[in-house]
Amino acid sequence: MKLMRTILIFLLIALAAAPAGEAKPVNKQVKIPQSVLNITKENTYPNPSQDLPYLQPSDFTEKLLKTSNVKIENPNLIRMLNETSVNHSFLSLGLRARIYLGEWPLNYESNETSPNWQYQKINTNYFDNRGGNANYKIHYVQESQKVVRGGLTAKLPKSDDVKKMMLLKAMENSNLPLAFDTIIGAGTKKDHEYNIPPKRLGYLYAYAPAVNEKGKVTYGEVYLVLKGTKREIMVKNVTSHGIGAWIPIQDYVSFGFAVTEQPK
């Protein structure tokens, strides 16, 4: 009996100490509605690819980044550090220096990445079938070239650096082709057809979708500190700012179809 009690106690302890089941990885890919179509092949204006691979720090830069008291992810600052070199020599043993590299946006932390499939209306195709006796088929034709621009929701120093970090994070979170500027060329067509019944007018609306990226950007004054043979990064006067951005989804169009008895 005592042996059974001992075994039971060990089993209870083992169960209590056992780690919980691993959390399933979050699927970051945004689900695209059926009303949203890809126009990459049909777009008469070839948008440049916005592939922004993570800039790999050099060995010297990687060692420096590990010494920083604040996480540094800014690709432009990493690029500058990659181009920096400090030679080790016997004469540097007594060296003491603090080099000011400027105030930089250091990292961006994303809180939310959400799509707006009707961010901006870019086109309207319509047909008056009030005099017809059968369905009339209508499809999308872009009547004029349209430039769709996104941007930050507030002014911040070194905004281009902030936009690049937010773009990288939004692309990672959504798995969508994003760009702060995208163009839909005139004459772009899509074969998908919509039926307008007799005695009705049909309106086919086209919208450029975008994602709304929200989060926090951290700034700080960056110093390169030299202490003999040691090289360190020191960040002072750290501040954080809430920031948002609208980033268009490149080469995608969202459609809305409406049928009415009277003109709109």
Rank of each mutant, 00 (worst) to 15 (best):
248 P>C: 05
174 S>Q: 04
65 L>M: 08
115 P>Q: 06
57 P>Y: 02
202 G>M: 01
144 S>I: 10
121 K>V: 11
60 F>H: 04
94 G>Y: 12
16 A>I: 09
114 S>Y: 13
55 L>V: 11
97 A>Y: 11
47 N>H: 08
48 P>G: 00
162 V>D: 05
100 Y>L: 07
30 V>M: 06
199 K>W: 03
108 Y>S: 03
7 I>R: 14
229 T>M: 09
200 R>L: 01
252 Y>S: 07
97 A>E: 12
191 D>G: 06
8 L>F: 13
80 M>D: 07
73 E>L: 06
130 R>W: 00
112 E>G: 03
32 I>K: 05
219 Y>R: 06
234 M>K: 15
78 I>S: 01
207 Y>I: 03
51 D>C: 11
197 P>W: 00
167 L>V: 11
257 F>C: 00
83 E>A: 07
252 Y>E: 05
199 K>Q: 07
61 T>P: 14
252 Y>N: 08
72 I>K: 04
82 N>V: 08
40 T>I: 12
200 R>W: 03
177 P>W: 12
38 N>W: 09
60 F>W: 12
118 Q>M: 14
94 G>R: 10
66 K>Q: 11
105 P>S: 07
167 L>K: 08
243 I>A: 01
161 D>F: 06
71 K>N: 10
10 F>A: 13
127 F>V: 04
41 K>S: 12
32 I>M: 02
199 K>T: 10
246 W>E: 13
220 G>V: 05
156 L>M: 11
206 A>C: 05
190 K>T: 14
217 V>Y: 04
166 M>W: 09
146 K>T: 15
17 A>Q: 09
164 K>R: 14
205 Y>T: 01
221 E>H: 15
22 E>W: 12
176 L>I: 03
79 R>K: 14
140 Y>N: 03
132 G>T: 00
193 E>Q: 10
70 V>N: 07
260 T>L: 05
183 I>K: 10
65 L>S: 03
264 K>G: 06
60 F>N: 02
225 V>T: 11
198 P>N: 00
231 R>Q: 12
75 P>F: 05
194 Y>L: 02
50 Q>L: 11
261 E>A: 10
246 W>G: 09
39 I>G: 02
40 T>H: 03
128 D>S: 00
154 A>M: 14
93 L>I: 14
9 I>P: 02
